[in-house]
């Protein structure tokens, strides 16, 4: 399966959440690879604690260079050898492969030409052949990267490969409207995809949403609130639920929801068991939510058509 992770706005926690999902899926024994298609700011290396690729890879061996045609194949980093976290070394027993294809340091957005589309198609098909889960982290908004992958997935060579879409958004009024617009609006994923030859309904059915930085009114985090504040929080949450349903991104297309967590917000890092239990910096709820999200990603039932 190829999973495209996208969001309309920046700062939704798209990259950090998808990196955590990739890690969890690999720990469950699946072979996973992660492509940093956020060409403007390739930061997956930093989130995954890979010192060699904190801001993308230098030396012109990253995805950007490959798509431009200056290298025959992009660099593939075996994360079990590159993650600088003691808890993940050596490779945990039973874990599948976890590979990062970083972007290039100093890369940027670029217009797409035919050869680039061919290269992208060959790469994605090969990775789908070798890995159970291929996560492609796209830049925010209606980017060139989004156009590129919609184009290649409509081609015959990739049509048989299962491709799915995850739209990340924060739990606010603006984000909900923006996420719905990116998925179903004018020049959105479904619209652009259909114009490029995708089956409209099938593409529509392959989109799911992930809510990030969601405050849970019932959690202990908000135990000290004044009664008026608590009531307001409840009310706002209910309003947002209604808004999401009106925008057609309600519960039926919700794949997961990740609570507000300082470790995700400030540090943008992998959340491991030690962060929850030993260091006690991350919340157990966050870890549980990420586990559930990883499970849903791999579960075909959660992707069934409506």
């Amino acid at each position: 399966m190829i999973l495209f992770a996208t969001s309309d706005k920046g700062g939704t926690g798209r990259s950090v959440t998808s990196c955590n999902v990739a890690l969890r899926c690999a720990l469950q024994g699946n072979d996973v690879c992660y492509l940093d298609f956020d060409f403007g700011s390739p930061t997956a290396g930093a989130i995954l604690h890979v010192d060699a690729a904190t801001r993308g890879l230098d030396g012109g061996r990253g995805l950007h260079s490959y798509l431009e045609g200056s290298v025959a194949a992009p660099a593939e980093l075996d994360l079990w050898r590159h993650i600088e976290r003691a808890e993940l070394r050596p490779r945990p027993a039973g874990a599948g492969r976890l590979v990062l294809l970083p972007g290039d340091e100093g890369g940027g957005e670029f217009p797409v030409d035919d050869e680039m589309t061919d290269r992208c198609q060959r790469l994605l098909r090969r990775l789908a052949e070798e890995f159970e889960l291929v996560i492609v982290d796209l830049s925010a908004g209606r980017s060139y990267a989004l156009q590129l992958v919609l184009e290649v997935t409509a081609r015959p060579a990739l049509r048989a490969v299962v491709t799915r879409w995850l739209v990340f958004h924060r739990w606010t009024r603006q984000h909900i409207v923006a996420a719905a617009g990116l998925a179903y609006g004018e020049h959105g994923i479904v619209d652009t995809g259909a114009a490029k030859g995708h089956h409209r309904d099938r593409l529509h059915d392959s989109v799911r949403f992930v809510r990030t930085a969601v405050p849970d009114p019932d959690s202990s985090q908000f135990a000290g609130l004044l009664p008026t504040q608590a009531a307001w929080l409840q009310e706002t949450d209910a309003e947002l639920q209604k808004l999401a349903a009106r925008q057609r991104i309600g519960r039926s297309v919700l794949l997961g929801s990740v609570p507000l967590d300082p470790v995700l917000q400030w540090r943008e890092q992998l959340i491991l068991d030690s962060d929850v239990w030993t260091l006690r910096i991350a919340n157990l709820e966050t870890s549980t939510a990420l586990d559930a999200l990883a499970k849903s990603v791999l579960d075909d039932e959660s992707w069934e058509g409506l």
């Binding site: 072979d31 492969r97 060959r122 098909r125 090969r126 789908a128 052949e129 070798e130 890995f131 159970e132 015959p156 060579a157 990739l158 048989a160 490969v161």
Partner: peptide
Amino acid sequence: QESPFLDQKPPFRAR
């Protein structure tokens, strides 16, 4: 591997 004869659904993944 891109041949149209193939259904792109291998029984398992192998490098």
